[in-house]
């Protein structure tokens, strides 16, 4: 019996094409490499061949056997791969990711922190003071005279609670954070550099730009040789940090009983025709304030400043109505 190996190879080529899964692969194996398969038949026929033919056919049949084995192995891998691919899920990778949503601090708190951070980096310490105050700390010690209009019930909330230290006088809600200046000066010896954020209260009817409760930040720096030039330098550095290098600013003379010289700080973003926005009050600490805090005359000088947090936040973030802060709409809280 003679074997046409080139025809056999053609058959193999054709048959391997039709192998697509485990079953057809098995059929293929049985047909060629099975116990009764073609390769076995060829090997069995070797004995019937002539001496000359035997080595040739033997060699060819070994080649065929190796080829079949390698084809089988290759096909087996292909089918296995195909199978594992079919088992995998195809993700819609664009479906929303799942997270546990973080909360938010209030924009007022964030603004306070931002401002405090700037001053802390400059070497200030953040302090706090009480909201319920006495006339002494809120007014008298700050050089605000006994009959000053700001002491009226029109400008300050009084509480139905007597001042334990001053007979016939009621406690009040601080109308600014400045009483903190006196408290700090009493508690610490200079040099001192403090920032005092907190709630303040004034009997203003609520509208888009007024609220009877709002937040202020007070600053106080006292040492042996603080000058007016320092006030300008410090607050310029602060404003540029908070609002960016592009702003312009100006110090405009103003009046506060507890500072002298006093100024208001205006900033402007516009080039050319400027609109100035007032952002803070400041000045050098008035000698009467040092006196009230029990500091020796002429020993120290200092600078002080105060700013409204809501106003800054409104300017910075384009909020038009101060009531937005206290309404606490979830959509507002989420934005910042």
């Amino acid at each position: 019996m003679t074997w046409n190996f080139s025809e056999i190879n053609q058959d193999v080529d054709k048959d391997i094409e039709s192998v697509v899964d485990q079953k057809t692969l098995e059929d293929f194996r049985i047909k060629y490499l099975g116990r009764k398969g073609l390769v076995q038949k060829i090997f069995a026929s070797l004995g019937t061949l002539s001496k000359e033919e035997k080595p040739i056919v033997g060699k060819d049949s070994n080649i065929l056997k190796n080829r079949l084995s390698s084809l089988l192995e290759q096909k087996q891998k292909e089918i296995a791969n195909k199978k594992s691919n079919a088992g995998k899920t195809k993700l819609d990778v664009s479906l929303p990711g799942v997270s546990f949503a973080s909360g938010h601090t209030h924009l007022i708190s964030q603004t306070i922190e931002e401002i405090c951070d700037i001053f802390e980096k400059l070497g200030f310490i953040v302090e706090e003071g009480p909201e319920i105050e006495t006339e002494h700390y809120n007014f008298s010690a700050l050089n605000i005279p006994a009959n000053h209009p700001s002491r009226d019930g029109f400008d300050t909330f009084y509480l139905n609670a007597p001042d334990p230290k001053e007979k016939g006088v009621n406690l009040l809600l601080r109308s600014h954070t400045s009483p903190g200046q006196i408290r700090i000066m009493e508690e610490h010896k200079p040099p001192l550099a403090v920032i005092i954020p907190g709630k303040v209260y004034r009997p203003d009817a609520v509208d888009a730009s007024h609220s009877f409760m709002f937040h202020q930040i007070e600053g106080l720096l006292i040492d042996k040789d603080i000058k007016f030039s320092h006030l300008k330098g410090l607050l310029s550095a602060f404003c540029k940090r908070l609002f960016g290098d592009k702003i312009e600013m100006r110090f405009r003379p103003h009046f506060f009983p507890f500072t002298e010289p006093s100024a208001e700080v205006d900033i402007s973003w516009a080039q050319g025709k400027k609109t100035w926005l007032e952002i803070m009050g400041c000045g050098l600490v008035h000698p009467a304030v040092f006196k009230a805090a029990g500091y020796p005359k002429g020993k120290y000088t200092g600078l002080a400043f105060g700013l409204g947090v809501e106003r800054i936040a409104m300017l910075k973030y384009g909020i038009k109505d101060i009531r937005t802060f206290y309404e606490n709409d979830d959509r507002f809280l989420k934005q910042f």
Partner: peptide, 18 residues
Amino acid sequence: YDQLPEALPLINATNMKE
């Protein structure tokens, strides 16, 4: 005030605590 000089103060309040 705009004609007056500007300078950064030396802030040295190390005796105060957080």
